[in-house]
Design a binder for these strands. Structure first.
Length: 928
RNA sequence: GGGAGUUUAGCUCAGCCGGUUCAGAGCACUUGCCUUACAAGCAAGGGGUCACUGGUUCGAAUCCAGUAACUCCCACCA
């Protein structure tokens, strides 16, 4: 059969993915096996695959496939998130392009558009994940806004309200003036910004002449005065908010501003007279120590307003234009207003000065161009103290393990300083808050509502609460707001198994808690922490045992991947170019847990090349003719089974088995510690270096010759297991090769059966067994000997085809391990190995450990070069010996260090001395 | 302002409890090879004062203290 020498992943990958789907090999049902559950961090329903997803889902798939091959009942549940704000803004934008304004539509009309949008763009990302090879149980695909999940959200809301953990209240919240909704504190991202600090003049009311000015100044007051009178100077970065000023505040202990105590000042331009109030909150050192107080537009000012009973003037509309509460600039945008007011203040002589200033400005996470506005508003909140209390212990006591561990700190810090969670959003796309308002005679009544799962129940409750049995369904009005997206995500590991609606059902009992959660550290608060809270609250069990935090995928220059920089490769294109296996390997090789990933797409080449290497190993083996040995005259009749396996092959097979066991031990450890890069690298080296470069070369028959049956079978068995080891990392190429190996030598019918019914993915992965280290050491020596011979050829320009002889000095009763002689001869192209007692004349020497090797040369030897080499080696070894001697001559070391360590040093000394002697005698030799 | 992390070869990283010829891996690089599995390859080879300073110790890449640079998280100083 003719097979291409280049592996082509395209056809192979599609073929096998379809096969897996057809056979429903990803599907899981509860059974007697140990469950292994992962829930996907649901990507935004309208999102497209980016490199972060690639990394995250590759890791999940590796773990899931590994668990499956360890005999567990692996269940990876996929799904998408409705992503309230993100999706709604996309829909709003798309409508705007069609000339439709959101608020020209009814809620239902808008939702129709949103669903349409969701169906059109939704789920693309899940399709893309199939290309990657993700072994999700697609039958379980969920959506945070599907029926089961929505019902769960409503139930939980009602429950928490009834428990007194959800409340409605007027608070200063973060407002997104573009999305026109409240945000949680977590959704605000602070950016450092270069801005201006404006120093404004607030003239003091009714102060014609300050009689004791000199005295006051003596006492430390700083008094501003000009032809128009006395004035205070207030520093602000936001002059546009002065229309909302209802006080000016100084610190009572501030010596600079004693003269202002008890006075009134005039808000510049606005002309409003406001009191000078006193509060220790004000920082004496900042600016002039005078603070303008705008209770409606700053959290601190709001608090001041509360303690000092100040009037609150809300000068902003929802979209952050100036409202009609303001005497000036009505309708103007806040930033335009800032520019204008600065000019106007300047013109009116009310600006003392302007300084450059750097401050932190909060931006909306979802609208990164939009600065949030602190805004006083009536919202729904979840009390977090209780949740912090239940969510902290499981992480601190390692019931849930974080990888890397440093995030424990971050987690604790957040929980210990937690604020109530603003869960209401002024959006339509999302779970509508199940609160129903009834008419109230008192216009100030904010408690005229009930919370219930359905409108019917709400009506019943409202009738009870009001005592008005005549309340009609039409009297009730459901709250217009939707819930924060994360209010559904936090239930994900529970709601996916219907554990909220259907507590104690078979699935939740079996699959929960999940085992591993793979996610990015930037959603530790949004999601990870809150899932732990929900898990503890509703199942009294943690939602997962391990959290693996991936790094941020950056480009090779270390910059975050972003659309605007255009530095993010298209994952689909990458997979087309390098194969999904190649990209997976590229991702994993660069991704040690918790570190940021500097991704260079060139690394995918390594993965592609590796697939090709494996492919070609298959080609080699497929080309072999097998000699069953029966025809071989050497077989004697005593042997029941014909065995014509040469010793070299027998040794090679034994060695490869030992080596595999050894490497497997390491791989198992790596998996336990979630060191996937290391596990992959170890597998890679096992396959490429040990198997392809060494083992296959050891057993490879000369061209045109057959291979013995035993070695052939052993080789297939080993290759087979290599595929099992590699499968979690590279599912496609391993499935392809595995099938070829299973069917090799089978008749067509049997091969067809295997191909139609079996998959590598539910085979048992090999586990490490005891291995003989001495044999491994013996082979290492042989490998070094081979390398020595090859190096000798290389450096002397000898052809690899020219056979050489090798003499190994084996004096002083040293036991030579001769098992590998045949292999050394074959791979070193050595005609014979001879063990001798002393040095050999007319030969070039090299050392393997403390063993001297000689290769006789027919040609003239470049004596000078040989001498130089030997002298360098001598110099190094003498230096080494000196450092060993320094230790051994130190009494403190000999007495203080453990016996073992001292013995090692003594051995080093003996070896070094032996080596020095050998080199010296060789040098001596050269002189003759 | 508080906290965490990082710093080892040209690049990306590993080095667990201080001691194995300990200074490693992969990639990149250099040299020689189209040797009938693979040039997406084979063979051989050269790269490092383990950020800096001090301390503990018989012994430090590893432990401690300090310094510097970078990164991240948290925080209401207008």
């Amino acid at each position: 059969m003719e097979i291409a020498s280049k592996y082509d992943p395209r056809a192979v990958e599609e073929k096998w993915y379809n096969f897996w789907l057809e056979k429903k090999l990803f599907h899981s049902e509860p059974d007697h096996r140990v469950p292994y559950t992962i829930v996907i961090p649901p990507p935004n329903v309208t999102g497209v695959l980016h490199m972060g997803h690639m990394l995250n889902n590759t890791i999940q798939d590796v773990l899931v496939r590994r668990a499956r091959m360890m005999g567990k009942n692996a269940c990876w549940v996929p799904g998408t998130d409705h992503a309230s704000i993100a999706t709604e803004s996309k829909v709003v934008k798309s409508l705007a392009e069609q000339g439709i304004k959101k608020h020209d539509l009814t809620r239902d009309q808008f939702l129709e558009h949103a669903w349409e949008w969701t169906h059109k763009h939704g789920g693309i990302i899940l399709q893309q994940l199939r290309k990657l090879g993700a072994s999700c149980d697609w039958d379980r695909t969920a959506f945070t806004m599907d029926e089961t999940r929505s019902e769960s959200v409503t139930k939980v809301f009602v429950d928490l309200y009834n428990k007194g953990l959800i409340y409605r209240g007027l608070r200063m919240i973060n407002w997104d003036p573009k999305a026109l909704t409240a945000l949680s504190t977590e959704e605000v991202e602070y950016k450092e910004e270069r801005s201006k600090l404006f120093y404004l003049k607030y003239y003091v009311v009714g102060l014609e002449k300050l009689e004791n000015a000199a005295e006051l100044e003596e006492a430390g007051n700083i008094i501003h005065h000009d032809e128009k009178g006395y004035y205070a100077v207030v520093a602000t970065t936001r002059p546009e908010t002065i229309m909302g000023d209802t006080a000016m505040c100084v610190n009572p202990k501030d010596p600079k501003n004693q003269w202002l105590r008890g006075r009134k000042v005039i808000v510049p331009l606005v002309g409003r007279e406001v009191n000078v109030i006193e509060d220790r909150y004000v920082d004496i050192e900042f600016g002039t120590g005078c603070l303008k107080v705008t209770p409606a537009h700053d959290v601190n000012d709001y608090n001041l307003g509360k303690t000092h009973n100040l009037e609150t003037i809300d000068i902003f509309n929802a979209d952050a234009t100036i409202s009609d509460q303001s005497p000036l600039y009505v309708g103007m945008d806040r930033f335009a207003c800032r520019k204008q007011i600065a000019k106007d203040l300047e013109a009116a002589g009310l600006m003392e000065k302007v300084e450059d200033y750097t401050n932190n400005v909060g931006y909306s996470q979802r609208n990164p161009d939009t600065a949030v506005e602190p805004r006083l508003s009536l919202q729904w909140f979840l009390k977090m103290k209780h949740f912090a209390d239940i969510a902290l212990p499981p992480v601190m006591n390692d019931e849930i393990k974080f990888y890397p561990e440093k995030y424990k700190n971050t987690y604790r810090q957040w929980l210990e300083n937690i604020q109530d969670w603003c869960i209401s959003r002024q959006l339509w796309w999302g779970h509508r808050i199940p609160a129903y308002y009834y008419p109230s005679s008192n216009p100030d009544d904010t408690e005229n509502f009930v919370v219930a799962e359905t409108a019917e129940q709400a009506l019943e409750l409202a009738r009870q609460k009001t005592g008005n049995a005549n309340l009609q369904p039409s009297d009730l009005r459901q709250d217009e707001d939707a819930l924060d997206t994360w209010f559904s995500s936090w239930l994900w590991p529970i709601s996916l198994f219907d554990g909220i609606n259907n507590p104690g059902n078979k699935e939740i009992e079996y699959y929960y808690p999940t085992v591993d959660l793979i996610t990015a550290p930037d959603i530790i608060f949004f999601w990870v922490a809150r899932m732990i809270m929900a898990g503890e609250e509703y199942l009294h069990k943690v939602p997962f045992r391990n959290v693996y935090f991936t790094g941020v995928v950056r480009d090779k220059l270390g910059r975050k991947m972003s659309k605007s920089l255009g530095n993010s490769p298209d994952p689909i294109k990458l997979m087309e170019q390098y194969g999904a296996d190649g990209v997976r390997m590229g991702m994993l090789l660069t991704a040690p847990a918790g570190n940021d990933i500097l991704f260079d797409e060139k690394i995918c080449e390594q993965g592609r090349n590796f697939s090709n290497k494996l492919w070609n190993a298959l080609r080699l083996i497929m080309g072999w003719q097998v000699d069953d040995g029966t025809k071989n005259g050497e077989n004697n009749e005593k042997t029941a089974i014909a065995n014509n396996q040469p010793t070299t092959n027998e040794v090679a097979v034994q060695w490869m088995e030992q080596r595999m066991a050894q490497v497997l031990e390491g791989i198992e450890k790596d998996f336990e510690q979630y060191r996937l890069s290391e596990a992959l690298m170890a597998s890679y080296k096992l396959a490429w270096d040990d198997f392809c470069s060494w083992y296959l070369e050891m057993v490879k028959p000369p061209f045109g010759q057959p291979i013995d049956r035993e070695t052939y079978d052993a080789t297939i068995s080993i290759f087979n297991r290599l595929m099992l080891i590699l499968h979690p990392f590279m599912p496609f190429v391993t499935e392809e090769i595995w099938h070829a190996l299973q069917t090799m030598g089978k008749d067509d019918e049997k091969a067809a059966f295997i191909n139609a019914n079996y998959s590598i993915m539910n085979q048992h992965a090999p586990t490490s067994v005891f291995y003989d280290e001495r044999m491994l050491d013996g082979c290492d020596t042989a490998r070094e000997m081979i390398a020595g011979v090859r190096n000798l050829r290389n450096s002397r320009g000898l052809s690899p085809k020219e056979q050489l002889e090798l003499f190994v000095v084996c004096g002083d009763g040293k036991q030579a391990d001769k098992r590998f002689d045949g292999i050394v001869c074959k791979l070193g192209n050595v005609s014979k190995i001879e063990y001798v007692d002393s040095k050999v004349d007319g030969a070039i020497s090299f050392m393997v450990g403390t063993t001297e090797c000689f290769v006789p040369m027919k040609q003239n030897i470049d004596l000078e070069a040989e001498r130089k080499k030997l002298e360098d080696d001598l110099h190094y070894t003498e230096g080494f010996l000196a450092s060993v001697m320094k230790k051994l001559n130190n009494e403190k070391f000999v007495n203080g260090a453990p016996e073992k360590v001292v013995a090692v040093e003594r051995k080093k000394k003996a070896d070094a001395e032996q080596k020095i002697a050998a080199i010296k005698s060789q040098l001596e030799n050269l002189k003759q």
